[in-house]
Nucleic acid binder design. Sequence first.
DNA 1: GCTCCGGTTAAGCGGAACCGATGGTGCGGT
DNA 2: ACCGCACCATCGGTTCCGCTTAACCGGAGC
Lengths: 301, 301
Amino acid sequence: MLDVRRLLLLRDLAVLGTIAAVAKARSFSTAAVSQQLSTLEREAKAPLLDRTTNRVVLTPAGEALVAHAERLTVELDEIDATLARDRGEPSGTLRLAVFPSAARAVVPEALAKMSVRYPGIEIQLTEELPASSVPRLRAGEFDVVLRHSYDLLPATEVEGVRQVRVHTEPMWLVRPPGAAVPGDARALEHHHWVSDQPGSECREVLVRWCAAAGFVPRIRHQVSDFAVALSLVAAGGGHALIPRLGVRALADGVVAGPVPGPALGRRVFAAHREGSGRHPLVAAAVEVFTEVFTEVFTDLD
Amino acid sequence: MLDVRRLLLLRDLAVLGTIAAVAKARSFSTAAVSQQLSTLEREAKAPLLDRTTNRVVLTPAGEALVAHAERLTVELDEIDATLARDRGEPSGTLRLAVFPSAARAVVPEALAKMSVRYPGIEIQLTEELPASSVPRLRAGEFDVVLRHSYDLLPATEVEGVRQVRVHTEPMWLVRPPGAAVPGDARALEHHHWVSDQPGSECREVLVRWCAAAGFVPRIRHQVSDFAVALSLVAAGGGHALIPRLGVRALADGVVAGPVPGPALGRRVFAAHREGSGRHPLVAAAVEVFTEVFTEVFTDLD
DNA sequence: GCTCCGGTTAAGCGGAACCGATGGTGCGGT
DNA sequence: ACCGCACCATCGGTTCCGCTTAACCGGAGC
């Protein structure tokens, strides 16, 4: 019988990509992970890793094992969940990862509400982009992850992860002082833009949105923090496309509103592993975030 | 996260009944099992065992965990099965348990056929009654178990165990030399009987069959081996109700044939754990036993 | 060229897991 | 009522597994 702990290491490897990442996630040395995976291969009597390159790659047999391991993970999470439910009042530590703008806009309210309603729950918060927080969720490093999915970008369904939509947030166009109200996207063709770094989802959305209108945006400033972007817009640095949450306070003279033309938005999800949905801590977090998001947005409107 | 090895010990306990039996099954000392289960309770933060009596009994929380563990077992068996399938030619050791009369009547042929068709498979045979072999199958001590299920007795479906019917074997009435051919069961009311020990299924079937005919059998001799029973019948010790397989060779003067009245039989099953059905060794055993049983019975007819 | 970065291997250590012995307890038999 | 048996928990001792540190290898990149 295959050792389950080692099998889960293999699954972690599949999710996180490198032995070093697995070691970091599990607080082991890389040597330990390497040894355990070698032992697993001996147990399985089949090569699971391709070590020809510098990085390790799973063989087909390894992939097959990982598929089984995913199902094991679900079952193990469900066991944890039932045990926690039987314990009565929710208590323990919830490891939570949120994307940056949510951290600023809604997380403080959510934490306050949690501590009142579920005093037994302690929260360990990490601000992290979905690109890395979701794999770490799958690997068991986080219990709940707040992530988002932009319109115009391919939707990313992740195996083994369930996500509850807690809100749909519109993208707003932020105009510098004195800029005219655009009738449609096309009217913005010759303006400058403030956007995020290349490779970021936000930036990609801007590019695609402009592409749909028939032009390539002239991006002058590249900053990842929405507050900084806003002040750059206020200083006349250009237009910006920013999610509603990032526009809670506007500098003087800056005007913001829904994008012209068809609606554009991003959906916000609370994600958790498939088997942990019935875990009291996870359920509590999803519940509170759903509430807080609607509250915040009704306040904004 | 709960340790899976300990969880499987709890499942073994649920199946086998006592810590001592689990220890024997796993080749541990009882101390080890006891310690591991205590650790499991600490991990689960819930009492899983009721130790008020001198035997240990599962609490509801323990039962719930066992239910999860059963599903884990299926998944783990399936992992083993896929690994074994990927290895190509079936090889390894198959642990097989058979009930006594099968051991005499069909197992030699089956083993011979196996060793020819699957030379890579080594078989470890144990002769054991289903009452104990099936739990040991569930606990992972055996891979395949030949068991039977008598008409007139409540059918026993076992959780987590799949069984393939390899044959339906008629019960035969064996008459001592000179005994008249009975028109119906009722005609046997005042004869003596040779049967098995009290508590055995065979004995119970005889009692119920006679009860259906309206009388209680007068059991004179109690032996568990069918061959011994046959020689007792031959010596005039009484009638006997014996499965077809137990009557391959008859002593002089003894006459045997299907029971008078409605057919009576026992179904023979090859049982395996739910998740191990696709394991090459298990599939091979089931296949060969199915063949051999039909061959043996066509030879008999 | 060197230096990181990712991975493997070897050697050593600490803790977990297992064993044997002891003692306690409920149950069946005489 | 007594004893014997089977079962289980606990304790101290030992073995062994799993992790760490350290050294080494190969490839990619400033």
